[in-house]
Computed example of a mutant assay.
Amino acid sequence: MQARDLMTADVETVEQSEEVSEVLQKLAKRKFTGFPVVDDENRLVGVVTQRDMVELFQPKSRTVWIPIGLPPFLESLEYGFELSWDELETELDLARNAGKPVKKIMTTDVLTVAPDASVDDILEILANDDRDVNRVPVVEGEELVGIVTREDVLRALHAERSGDA
């Protein structure tokens, strides 16, 4: 089994020039959590996910870590206090970031496979704890030709093992 056997060829993408607000609206209407980002010639230039959006609206700078030493402990414990996170700040973040092009927040170091990649090659990417990848773009040269999701791989493995392949 190869990537071409598992992939969805009709991939929904976003353009790198699309605004964050447009991509948020598209994500809200879909059951998946991210899009491949392409340029004008359908070349893969990145991936944008819900996680990228969350980081826009929950910056790490809002959490303050305070070391607190309590007897009889010899070492201090660190407690994280999140600074105010109310509707006003969320709306301000949205207004501040809505017009940004998606290329400003997308992941550009994308793990990809060729159409002839094996299931094991795909599993190696999907099982990588450091990256937490849910979908693997399939590229031929630089052109996006498909996408394989965790669900695609699981469905194919189940079908193969149950004899439904």
Rank of each mutant, 00 (worst) to 15 (best):
F57N: 10
T63S: 13
E143M: 02
W65A: 13
Y79S: 05
E143I: 06
V64F: 05
V64G: 01
K104F: 06
V110I: 14
G69V: 07
W65Q: 10
W85G: 00
P101A: 08
K104D: 13
E82K: 14
D93H: 04
E82C: 00
A117M: 11
R96Y: 01
A95N: 01
D132C: 06
L126K: 07
D132P: 02
V148P: 01
T108M: 11
D129N: 10
S118P: 13
R135P: 01
L83Q: 06
E55P: 12
L123M: 14
S118W: 09
L74D: 09
E55H: 15
I122L: 08
S61Y: 03
D120S: 14
S118L: 09
F81L: 09
P71A: 09
P59N: 12
L88W: 04
E140L: 09
L92S: 04
L74K: 15
L126I: 09
D109G: 10
V54Y: 14
K60P: 10
T90W: 03
N128V: 05
P137E: 00
L111P: 02
A98R: 10
P115F: 08
T107E: 11
I66S: 05
K100N: 13
L144A: 05
L88N: 07
G141C: 06
F81N: 00
S84F: 03
V102I: 15
L144M: 09
M106A: 09
E78H: 04
S84T: 11
